[in-house]
Amino acid sequence: MPAILSNRKRPDTGLMVLRIFVAAFFIFLLAPILIVVLYSVSDAAYTVWPIQDLSLRWYERMIEYRPFLTSLGFSFKVAIWAAALSILIGVPAALALARSRSPLAEAVTTFLLAPLSMPMILLGVALLYYFSWMGLGVSQTGVILSHTVVSLPYIVRTVAAVYMNAGKGQEESAAILGANRVQVFVRVTLPMIRAGILAGGIFAMLISLDNLPISFFFAGPDTNTLPVVMLAYQQNQFDPAIAAISTTQMVIAIAMLLVVQRLTGLHHIIGQQR
């Protein structure tokens, strides 16, 4: 349907300008990352640009340095847990807030988004002392719960935004047609907010994977996340192994996104099924 409309239009300058702008944006976005990927396959320890010789030896080094791989695994574990917990408690909250006419709604929304505005280094220290007082101390549970605190706001906000924009018509029609609450939720509401959950879930994972200021305070032999290990490594040694593990993390994360894409259709974020 809408495609017909755009096909009918003559190629226009407006669209051309937009295309160039978008292309420039993606170049801006990917250029520094390209440097990192190139650096990871350069042969020299201290690279002079442009790169002279290519080598995979930094990937060997990456595999040889144990903490890289163990912390990489733990990082993903934390990210998935934090995203899952956030979705579990964040989605009901978002649905309630999006439709609520209660005068308290703004206050509650502000409260649920508050962890976003707390400087993470401070939150990290506060949580370290708090969990230690609870007896959880430097533990995997501590890391996961801390990351959930900072992931939750993303889910709440993205799901609420999408749900607010989707009209109530469909849900009400379904209810009138005799669907019960569970059916309405699974068949109507869930597909409606899918884009929000996906976007929020991705945000939550990104925030968790890249988090240094909180993870830092919870780091121990069993609780090292990759950013903490990378920091510790590069403080004493700066070689392309850092770029190699960085690239590996990115590739794994993209592979996970591919799985999500297969399972749920990532393109729902930009709504191609409509």
């Binding site: 903490p67 032999p221 510790a232």
Partner: peptide, 23 residues
Amino acid sequence: VDVNIGSPTQWVNQIAANADNPP
């Protein structure tokens, strides 16, 4: 022996938070 890699600020805070039973 468990080896904790990281930075001093992190360790000092971890010890201070669990002074009776330091990690």
